[in-house]
């Protein structure tokens, strides 16, 4: 895995860290926005990772728990410079939000008492509610598109469990993960037998 512009004996820790740091500091809108930018940076600009491998890394980042942007950064760091690289890129991905939110958090108590700031934040919460409503509608349509009964049943049951019966979220996640695994195994066997 020697890309262009990369000496195989000297790992580019500095540029790796800096690239992830700047991407993380300037990217609004979460994982799905940062992934294409990462591809542009590491596949097209730096040539450290090839196109297909980046697609694979993206799939792993999305399959793992945690923030997709951080997961992708860890994978890129690992691929380019091993475990130290992964630690470095994780730091680079986390540092900008850590610094920005620390500053905001320190002023939050004082700011929140100001009625103008309170109105601004209140309005922004309404905006977030609209954004999440939009995302939820899109996600539910995505599930309905499969035209399978099981996911719809899981959706309804999970909503009822969380909303009306205050079932522990971790329990719901574990249970639905098991249902997914069983369903995959069952369908795999049925597919193989046919």
């Amino acid at each position: 895995m020697t890309g262009r512009g990369m000496d195989p004996h000297k790992k580019p820790y500095g540029r790796l860290f800096w690239s992830v740091l700047t991407l993380s500091a300037c990217t609004f809108g979460g994982g799905f926005v940062i992934l294409p930018l990462m591809r542009k940076k590491f596949v097209q600009d730096l040539g450290w990772i090839d196109e297909q491998e980046m697609l694979d890394l993206t799939a792993i980042a999305q399959s793992s728990p945690g923030a997709i942007a951080v997961n992708a950064a860890i994978l890129v760091g690992y691929r380019v410079a091993g475990l130290p690289g992964a630690a470095l890129t994780a730091l680079g991905a986390v540092l900008p939000p850590l610094v920005i939110l620390s500053v905001i958090s320190l002023f939050y108590q004082a700011f929140r008492a100001n009625p103008l700031i309170a109105a601004l934040l209140g309005g922004m919460v309404v905006g977030v509610a609209a954004v999440i409503a939009d995302v939820t509608v899109t996600l539910i349509r995505g599930i309905l598109e499969h035209r399978r009964l099981l996911p719809v049943l899981v959706l309804i049951a999970a909503f009822a469990a969380v909303r009306f019966f205050q079932v522990n979220l971790l329990l719901v996640i574990l249970l639905c993960g098991c249902i997914g695994a069983a369903d995959t195994l069952y369908r795999g066997r049925k597919g193989a037998g046919a």
Binding site: I143, D183, L185
Partner: peptide, 17 residues
Amino acid sequence: QGVLDGLRPAVVAMIAS
């Protein structure tokens, strides 16, 4: 992938809630 497919509706339900 199968586990993730099974989780997706649950995750959507939690986001909705």
